[in-house]
Computed example of a mutant assay.
Amino acid sequence: MKILFDIGHPAHVHLFKHFIRYLLSEGNTVIVASRDKDITNELLKKYAIPFVSISKKKNGFFGLFIEFIERLVRVFVLERRYKFDLAFGTSSSIGFLTLFCGVKSYNFCEDDDIAVPFHALISYPLNTKIINSKGVKYRFWKNKRVIHNSYQKLAYLHPNRFHPDESAIRKYSLTPYSYVIVRLSALNAHHDIGAKGIDAELLSKVISEFGDYRIIYSREIEGSHQINIEDMHDVLYYSKMLISDSQSMSVEASCLGVPSIRYSTFVGKLSVLGQLENKYGLTFGFQLGQEERMLEKIRQLLSQKDLTADYSKKRELLLQDKCDFTEWMINFFQSEKDLT
């Protein structure tokens, strides 16, 4: 089969990388249309996944609209060349292949529809199926929903896929649980308009709580990362804690059993993170105006003697409930392939 993957974010490289390898091993033709955003293309190179970069990230509503048109045109150029049977992705482009070319499209999203209204409005009516995690909230297009009992991050952070390597952290003169990761998101995606996260004043207060712990920074807006891309998940696994205004890395930390503190206007608006916080107790969200509560939670976690062991147990409970998402995608593909 000829299969398109439309990948626009570094997290989606991780999401699909094992699935893509499986498809290639089965003799399928796979074309990856990428977006030059942050480290997306670097990751594809790292994992030896052939790709065609069809757009470069633009900012602002008008810039994002121009980029959307560019991607759409170039996706149709790829379709004219390859004649795809299926299209997988997280973008809006693949739905238009369904509308105009009859290509079956499968849109993967872990956000509630209300959190990504523009994406939902222009994508979901066109997609063949919408792939959501259990608990994601939606009101429309119910007949298109395919619900799985996993998280997208478990496509690459499930123990079947991820095996932590302590030697990776030694490259940075780190020892397990002696450091904290601070992840600052750019908050400039289409669904981030008006969003706010950790500012310089709050960051200074947060850092002062950690005393002798080493601070590892990852700043998306500056493209500044102290850790090589291939080591990031190992470094996250062995960290004491994650402080972040990034929803994506907060979910990753939870899947690895690392306590995380997140602060942004998105807190309380995403069901997946709500589930990780309220059911599994793996992450804690704070909204603007709750800075003192956030600092108190950091102090509480740091004072807990068995913090790492406790969160490892919480992770085990999560893994008892949730499946390997790559395995789920493979099984889903087989069932859809039989219908094609």
Rank of each mutant, 00 (worst) to 15 (best):
N160K: 10
R161N: 15
R161V: 12
H163M: 09
H163E: 13
P164N: 09
D165S: 13
A168R: 15
I169K: 02
R170S: 13
T175G: 13
Y177M: 07
Y177S: 13
S178W: 08
V180L: 11
V180H: 00
V182K: 04
V182A: 04
L184V: 11
A186N: 13
A186M: 07
L187K: 06
L187V: 05
A189I: 07
A189C: 07
H190N: 12
H191Q: 11
D192K: 03
I193P: 03
K196P: 06
G197P: 08
I198C: 08
D199P: 06
A200C: 08
L202C: 09
L202Q: 09
L202I: 12
S204E: 14
S204N: 12
S204T: 11
V206M: 03
I207K: 15
S208E: 13
S208Y: 11
E209G: 10
F210K: 06
D212P: 08
D212Y: 07
Y213K: 13
I215W: 00
I215D: 00
I215Y: 03
S218V: 10
R219F: 12
I221R: 15
E222V: 11
G223H: 07
S224Q: 10
H225M: 08
Q226V: 05
Q226G: 04
I227N: 02
I229Q: 11
E230F: 10
M232S: 12
H233I: 05
D234Y: 06
D234W: 06
D234F: 05
V235D: 05
L236D: 07
Y237G: 02
Y238M: 09
K240W: 04
M241S: 03
M241Q: 03
M241E: 00
L242S: 01
S246P: 14
S246K: 11
Q247K: 11
Q247P: 03
Q247F: 15
S248W: 09
M249A: 06
M249K: 02
V251P: 01
V251G: 05
E252R: 05
E252W: 04
A253D: 05
A253P: 02
S254Q: 01
C255T: 00
C255D: 01
L256P: 12
G257A: 13
P259Y: 12
V267S: 00
V267W: 02
G268R: 01
G268I: 06
